[in-house]
Nucleic acid binder design. Structure first.
Lengths: 169, 169
DNA sequence: GACGAATGGTTCGCCAGCGAAATAGTCTGC
DNA sequence: GCAGACTATTTCGCTGGCGAACCATTCGTC
C-alpha cells in the first residue's frame, strides 16, 4: 500500500534539494490534519456547527465554561482579531455570552450558555467518533508511541524560540 | 517538561467524554502544523513569498514544472475555485504561466516560468531549514518511527472512505 | 495624583478559500 | 451528426482570519 506522500516523494527522487524524511513527516502531518478538518467539517454539519465554532466551545468548556478572549486566542493560536470574530458569531448564535469584567473593566469574560453547552455535548460525540476512527487504526502501543514522538516535537517547538520566528512570545 | 496539550488535557481530567490519547494525538498534530505554518510564513517573507504560494510552486516542480489545475488542486486538497485563485496571483507575479491545451481545449497547463523556478529554489532552502529544525529534535530512528506511524494513518485515511465524508472521491 | 507606557479588546480593510453556478469543450448513443 | 451527459476551469458572492490602527482602562513612577 502506498499513500499520496509516497507518490509525491517518488516524483522527487534524485532532483530534490531536501531531506526526504523531513519532507515525508511534515507533508504527512499536514495532509492528515487537512483531511481531518474536512471530515470533521462534514460530520459536524449534522448539528449545524462548523469546526472552528466547535473548537472554540471545546476550549471554553476545558476552562470550565469561562475564559477571556486572550486565553482562548492563545489556546487556539489565533490572532486577537480572529478571536473577536469567532466570538461574535458564537454570541449571535446564543452559544456564548460576553460579560464585561468588574474588577478590571478592560477585560471581558466569555461564558458558555446552557444552549452552548448542550450543542457542544452533541458535537462532542461526533467529533470523538471522527477522530477516534482515524487514530484507532493504530493499536494501543502504537498510539502511545506516536503521541510520545509528537509530544517531543511540540515541547521543543513551544519551548525554543526559533531563529525565524519574528513574532513576540 | 510539559507542552500546551498536557495543560489542555489536565484541565479535562475526569470531566471528559473522550479518549484522552486520541485527543492528545490529534491536538498535538494540529498544533504542530499550525506552528509550522506560522514559522514558515515568517521565514518565507525573506524572499517575499507566502506559504501557499510556495506550496503551489513546490507541487508544480514535483510534476516537472507542468501540471493542470485539477492535478494541483488534488495534490493540495484544495477546491478548484481556490486553485484558480492561487494561480491568478502566481501568474500575476510572473512565477507561472497558463497555457490552454491544444488536444483538449478545456484543459489548461500550468507551467513554471524561469523566474518561478529561481524563486522556488531560494525559498526551498529556507523552508527546508525551518522544517528540518523542527524534525531534527528527534534522532534518525525516532524520525523513521514517527514517519512509519503517520504513514499508517494516512494510508488508512486515504484508502477508506469514511462514513461521515460526504464529498466525492 | 497625573502622565506616559502597557494591556485587553474591538474595528477596519484586506485576502485566501469555499460552494454553487456559469462557461466552454468533449464524449456517447442513437 | 446532434442531443444530452459529463469534464475542466472560471466567476461570483460570502466568510474566517490577519495585521495595523484604535479605544478604553489600568499600572508605574516621579
Amino acid at each position: 500500500m502506498e499513500d499520496s506522500v509516497d507518490r509525491h516523494l517518488a516524483r522527487w527522487r534524485g532532483k530534490a534539494p531536501f531531506e526526504e524524511r523531513v519532507e515525508a513527516i511534515v507533508t504527512r502531518m499536514q495532509t492528515l490534519v487537512k483531511h481531518l478538518a474536512h471530515t470533521k467539517e462534514a460530520a459536524l454539519a449534522q448539528v449545524g456547527m462548523q469546526d472552528y465554532e466547535f473548537e472554540t466551545l471545546h476550549r471554553l468548556v476545558a476552562r470550565d465554561g469561562r475564559a477571556t478572549p486572550s486565553e482562548l486566542a492563545a489556546d487556539l493560536l489565533l490572532s486577537p482579531a480572529g478571536m473577536t470574530g469567532r466570538l461574535d458569531t458564537l454570541e449571535k448564535a446564543g452559544l456564548v455570552r460576553r460579560v464585561r469584567s468588574v474588577e478590571d473593566r478592560r477585560r471581558v469574560d466569555v461564558e458558555l450558555t446552557p444552549k452552548g453547552r448542550d450543542l457542544w455535548t452533541d458535537a462532542m460525540t461526533i467529533r470523538g467518533e471522527v477522530e477516534a476512527h482515524m487514530v484507532h487504526v493504530l493499536d494501543e502501543e502504537a498510539q502511545a508511541q506516536l503521541d510520545r514522538l509528537l509530544r517531543r516535537l511540540l515541547t521543543s517547538v513551544e519551548s525554543g524560540r526559533v531563529p525565524w520566528d519574528t513574532r513576540p512570545a
